[in-house]
Design a binder for these strands. Structure first.
Lengths: 201, 201
DNA sequence: TTTTTGCGAGTGAATGCTAACTAACTTGAT
DNA sequence: ATCAAGTTAGTTAGCATTCACTCGCAAAAA
């Protein structure tokens, strides 16, 4: 069940590279066609519109992300904190490998009110949000995390903190060490919410 | 020393409203001129370019923000936590009153690589970052905050958490209660870092 | 006190550019 | 000989910006 043809994937990869290197506003049919070595109309043989190219990019990433996260192998004994670490690590690693997706996800406002695109971005954000929230609830119920804060608020802080780290990385021109900085942020938060051998309320 | 003429302020306000209502991608010289009831060339009598209009908007906000935060009256006895609450509260209140500025600040990527605009946005972010970081250092040194995390990391988490809340508010179409949600996030973080009558390290 | 001159602020009609997208034609493989 | 996949040469539309001009007023000159 091949979702995309070879050419389509080639186009999507070229788009990814273009965005990584020059930002999303530099992704035009013209530059894209040049990158691949085709004429502009040729692209329209493979995608209905530019919108469809971006949409496919997001859809592709969403599926990839879901599969990737769901297939992280956890031993039954893995603590919730370690699961969270694995999830974020995997996610940040993906960003490092394909910085383009960050540009797209962070650029909601660029989509000229194109609902299908902002919806896809929302779906991706929601999915991440869900993984995190579920983890936190689980951790709180099992007593691994304290309950100083509601799960929703904690989720917001966690994702917000990581997002901020990603943003800084992006603004630094991908010079900072995203993996390390992300880990620092996550560990910091975990340090504050983990019930180790400390007081209980 | 009037920095802007009346007309310039009128234009800046119209731009603000246009962005608030229809997003930044709907801000064109044409729509802007229509809003004010002038012709397009007329705008060029007052600003050199569209870029200059946006730049002025950001510059104006930056100055306003600086003055506003610096003139928050603190009694000498105010705790660092309460100072932080006051700063964020003031900031969020401003966002609620002028949602446009959020659109502009969150839309870095829209600026066709116009350096002066992204720089202004960076300046604003840095300023906020500084206020927060200073506060945290102060709080940690005076023992009001614990030192489980470095000041930089904590700053990232704090600003990240708030930013995330603002983003959600924006995505909700300004329907959620930004002030309340922001306060919840901030209080949550403070609860985790404040040394009240608990253990000392 | 008229008259002239200069100027701030405005206008309609281009201009030039960049995009996305399309029509109509070609070619090479099955 | 069909058809998928190209190509050349457009079209259309949006946008920032400029051109050449006007109008009314205020100050300088007569």
């Amino acid at each position: 069940m091949q979702e995309f043809t070879d050419r389509q994937i080639e186009i999507m990869e070229a788009a990814t590279n273009r965005i990584s290197k020059f930002g999303i506003q530099n992704l035009t049919i013209k530059t894209l066609a040049e990158d691949i070595g085709l004429s502009e109309p040729a692209l329209y043989r493979h995608f209905k519109s530019k919108n469809q190219i971006l949409w496919s990019l997001l859809e592709y990433f969403k599926t990839e992300m879901k599969n990737r996260i769901q297939s992280i192998p956890f031993k039954p004994s893995t603590s919730e904190a370690d699961k969270l670490r694995a999830i974020f690590n995997s996610q940040l690693q993906t960003f490092v490998n394909k910085p383009a997706i960050v540009s797209v996800i962070f650029a909601e406002s660029i989509f000229h009110y194109e609902e299908n695109l902002s919806n896809k971005v929302s779906e991706i954000m929601d999915m991440m949000q869900n993984y995190v929230k579920t983890n936190i609830k689980q951790g709180q119920e099992s007593g691994q995390y304290n309950k100083l804060m509601g799960a929703s608020t904690l989720t917001t802080i966690l994702i917000g903190g990581i997002r901020m780290t990603v943003l800084k990385w992006k603004l630094s021109g991908h010079k900072s060490d995203l993996i390390k900085d992300g880990k620092t942020v996550l560990d910091g938060i975990l340090k504050m919410i983990e019930n180790k051998n400390t007081i209980k309320y």
